[in-house]
Structures are given as C-alpha cells and as structure tokens.
Amino acid sequence: MIGNKTRRLMASGAAALLLAAGGVLAGAAPASAAYSDCPHGRACFFSDWNGTGSWGSAPGCGTYYLGQWAGTVSSIKTHGNAIRLLDGKNNSVGYVPAWTSTNLSAAENDKAQWIWVIC
C-alpha cells in the first residue's frame, strides 16, 4: 500500500517531469475574445480568425502543449518573441514573427499541437 507521503512525492515528481518536457496550457474561454485581450509579454493563440473565439497564452519562453486548443488555433498575437507552431510529431507547421497579430494560412490553420516561444 502506498502512503500519502509517497503519493505526494510521486505527484510532485510527475509535475516536475511535465514542466521539464514542456508545460500544458490551460485557461478559460471568454465570451468574446480580441487581440487586445492578450497580456503584454505573452504569445496568445485564438480558435478563430482575427483574434476571436476561445483563447489562451504561453506564459514565457519554451515549448507548451496547447491542451484544449490543440488542433484548433486559427490566429496568433505575439509580443516580443517569435513563435513556432508544432504538430504532434514535432514538425513545424507555422511560424509567426515577434510583434505580430495575424491569421494563420490555410496550410497552418488548425494544425498546431504545441507552441514554441522562441527566446
């Protein structure tokens, strides 16, 4: 039988492994999103074109699994860093330069599983 202390150690170890491998993004969908909702210094992604629909953001440099937005990203806003969008096999499916608000192309739309904030 596993004790509570062992369970806590296992849980904290799993969390550390997840963060080392790349975080998972979470968030809530607002009633109406806009590019202006993107906090300064973050890279934000939106489920619909023109910065609308549900949205989330990467908290900083690194690679993050898009979670509920995996396969649904249609537009991006970047602040100071460029981002690369990756599919489930770690292949690049898109690139957005720093200081850009844009819709993804037909080839990039709804393909990303991961976001890499390049620093």
Rank of each mutant, 00 (worst) to 15 (best):
residue 1 M to A: 13
residue 7 R to G: 01
residue 8 R to K: 15
residue 13 G to V: 01
residue 13 G to R: 10
residue 17 L to V: 03
residue 18 L to R: 14
residue 23 G to L: 07
residue 23 G to F: 05
residue 24 V to Q: 13
residue 24 V to P: 02
residue 25 L to S: 00
residue 28 A to K: 14
residue 30 P to K: 04
residue 30 P to C: 02
residue 37 D to L: 10
residue 39 P to S: 11
residue 46 F to Y: 15
residue 46 F to L: 06
residue 47 S to G: 14
residue 48 D to I: 05
residue 49 W to G: 12
residue 56 G to A: 11
residue 57 S to N: 10
residue 58 A to L: 04
residue 61 C to R: 08
residue 63 T to V: 03
residue 63 T to S: 11
residue 63 T to R: 14
residue 67 G to S: 10
residue 68 Q to G: 14
residue 69 W to F: 09
residue 70 A to G: 07
residue 71 G to W: 10
residue 71 G to E: 09
residue 72 T to A: 13
residue 73 V to Y: 05
residue 74 S to Y: 01
residue 76 I to R: 10
residue 76 I to V: 15
residue 77 K to G: 05
residue 78 T to P: 05
residue 81 N to Y: 15
residue 81 N to H: 14
residue 82 A to D: 04
residue 83 I to M: 05
residue 85 L to K: 11
residue 88 G to E: 14
residue 92 S to A: 14
residue 94 G to I: 08
residue 95 Y to C: 01
residue 97 P to S: 15
residue 98 A to M: 01
residue 98 A to Y: 00
residue 98 A to F: 04
residue 101 S to I: 00
residue 103 N to I: 03
residue 108 E to L: 00
residue 109 N to C: 10
residue 110 D to Q: 15
residue 110 D to M: 10
residue 110 D to V: 05
residue 110 D to Y: 10
residue 113 Q to R: 08
residue 113 Q to L: 03
residue 114 W to H: 07
residue 115 I to Y: 03
residue 116 W to V: 00
